[in-house]
Structures are given as structure tokens and as C-alpha cells.
Amino acid sequence: MSRISQRLNQAKASGKKILVAYVVNGDPFPQATLPTLHAMVEQGVDVIELGVPFSDPMAEGPVIQKGHERALEHGTSLNGTLEIVKQFRATNNTTPVVLMGYANPVERFGYAEFAKAAANAGVDGLLTVDLPPEEVAVLKAELDANGLDNIFLLAPTTTVERAQKIAAHASGFLYYVSLKGVTGAGHLDVDAVKTKLAEFGKLTDLPVCVGFGIKDPETAKAVAGLADGVVVGSVLVDKMGAQADKTAEEIAASVGDIISGIRKAIDTL
């Protein structure tokens, strides 16, 4: 069983909600990432989603776009991201790490080469925002061959028929995009999420985590009550950007504080 499934089953068995946290590798500077990942785990993150910076992050709102830009200014690459995961694994062999990014850096790396290198580094899964099931076949074969989970998005605009198709391709967990829009948007509608999740929940045994637009413990709690877990990203990236002039340890601690608040809120469910 993959590290992702193991961890998510564990959470489910203990009746806890899954907390997935996203930061961009190399943001706001390369040395900040590793201590931040460890701090997030200490404060109760179940799955790390590590953003691979891209020059044209089409699905991101302004906050995460800036995170990508800051990371790229420091020359952060996909190769460097794998290196960070390897370093993380030196002291943590249990927390799943999913890379989240866009197709082109992976294409340039080479699908087969990437899958192999990612597995070697200790990566557990990949979420490629701009590779829907129709275009993913070649990459998926390589991920499968290397035991990596392929995480997919479901959206408010996804039909039930299509969700079935996506679920058939997916492993690990499904990521439900809570709103029509980009990451960090401000118009989350909890009732709408509820209706849609009720439809999708029947289609799959995979855990469903909800993200986009979750900015504080209250929204995290409201949404976590409807799903298996929540994904937070923009609120962390925003904090990291605001502290670009602080030390790596200070940045890690402040991200840990946000995580701790969200963890406590969803643990009351």
C-alpha cells in the first residue's frame, strides 16, 4: 500500500480529518522550505503538497503566483524539488509528499526519468494541474510503474459521468476544487460544496479532500465536516511571502502556527 493510502486509512480509522498543506518549493528562498515542511508535520499536517514552481501557473490566484515567482527568482527547479524531498526523507519516512505543478517542467524532465527520480527521492504522488485524464495516459503509465499515485482534481463544473472517469484514473485521494476560480479565491460556498460532494462521494472509495479558498480555521472546519479532509495553501504562501526578510526558522514557526490553528479546529469535529 502506498504511503498516501496508509496515512489516509490511518486517519480515517482514528476518526480524524485529513489535513493537506501546500507550500511552494523555494519560496520565499530555498533554505526556508525544509524547516517549514517539518514544522507543518509537527503541527499536524497529514500530507504535504509541495508546489513545483512554474513560469505560467494558470490555475493559481495572485498569492500563489507570487510564491512561484519568488521561488523562480532563486532558480528553483523540478530537479531541486526532488532534492528537497530527498532531504526531507532523511528524517521523515512516514508523511506522504505529493508534488503539485504543471505539465511542462515534467515533460522537459522526461516522463520516465521523472517518475523514476521522484520515486527514488521519496515522492509519493503527483498532481499535474493541466493534465486531465484525456492527456495523462503516457505519464500515468510511468507513475504506475514506479508506484506513484496520480492525484486528480474534481471541480464544481465536473459532471457525474466525468467524475466517474476521473475516479477510475485516480489513486491516493481526490482533490475537490471547492469553487469556480483560482487558488485563494474568496467566494467559497459551503452549501454548494455539500451538494456536489454528496454526488461525488457515491462514486469512489478514495478519500476526497477539498481545497481552494480555505483561509482560516472556521472555513477549514466547515468544509472538513463535509469531506475526508481539507487542503490549505494560499494562506500559508501569503504568510511566507510576507516574511521573506525573516529567517527560515521564523518562517517555519509562523507557518506551523497557522497549521496548528486549523488542526485544532478540524479536530473538534
Binding site: M58, A59, P132, A155, T157, T158, R162, V177, G181
Partner: peptide, 8 residues
Amino acid sequence: FVSETLIY
């Protein structure tokens, strides 16, 4: 090659 939201 787009995010799921745009497929529909």
C-alpha cells in the same frame, strides 16, 4: 491541457 474547472 487545462485545469479541470475549464473542461466543462
